[in-house]
């Protein structure tokens, strides 16, 4: 019996919602309970967009993640806003190419990954989100690795099928990144 609460936050356009949907589908394919709740509204242009995902072996109550077990911060305002909310012992993943500062808390596990830089260096622009997820899955096992491909097949539309391998490439970069 376990429940994992994930919060992914950044700018609108960074693939926050897509990354969340991927995780949600991976859990669904395992037969687990899951909820995915996006922020919506004016803050999506330029400010923080975020997405709450809850993966659970029991029925999900509130779909709102206020104390994440896993926080993925893709811009500074998101880290500023949610660092203090993470549960003690939580894992925080920071896109260190966009966030200059370090996490101040010492009761959490922090991983710094220059995901946006890595994405442009490897011709995988717009896939910084998946680079981060590769690291998240490697470090936390939030979903089993063998669910990656089937879940991607659910969220990458047929029209963009050629992007599926690119997503996997990005996730491998994140998985193999050493600080």
């Amino acid at each position: 019996m376990s429940t994992t609460e994930v919060l992914i936050a950044g700018f609108g356009g960074q693939g926050i919602l897509f990354a969340g949907k991927f995780l949600a589908y991976a859990a669904l394919l395992q037969g687990r309970n899951v909820s995915w709740l996006p922020s919506y509204g004016p803050e999506m242009r330029g400010g923080t967009a975020n997405c709450s995902i809850i993966l659970s072996d029991v029925q999900v109550g509130s779909p709102i993640v206020s104390k994440p077990d896993i926080l993925i911060a893709m811009n500074l305002p998101s880290l500023d806003k949610y660092e203090k909310e993470a549960k003690p012992g939580a894992s925080i993943f920071v896109d260190s190419s966009l966030i200059g500062r370090k996490v101040e808390r010492d009761d959490v596990n922090v991983y710094y990954i220059p995901a946006t830089q890595m994405s442009t260096d490897n011709g995988l622009e717009t896939l910084a989100n998946m680079i981060l997820l590769g690291a998240v899955i490697d470090k936390t096992q939030v979903i089993p690795e063998d669910m990656i491909r089937p879940a991607l097949e659910k969220v990458v539309s047929a029209r963009h099928a050629w992007l599926l391998e690119k997503n996997i490439e990005a996730m491998n970069l994140g998985k193999n990144y050493k600080e």
Binding site: L28, N33, V34, L37, Y40, P63
Partner: peptide, 10 residues
């Protein structure tokens, strides 16, 4: 309400 409309669940 807004959450029911916007959230995804199986």
């Amino acid at each position: 309400d807004g959450t029911m409309g916007q959230m995804m669940e199986p």
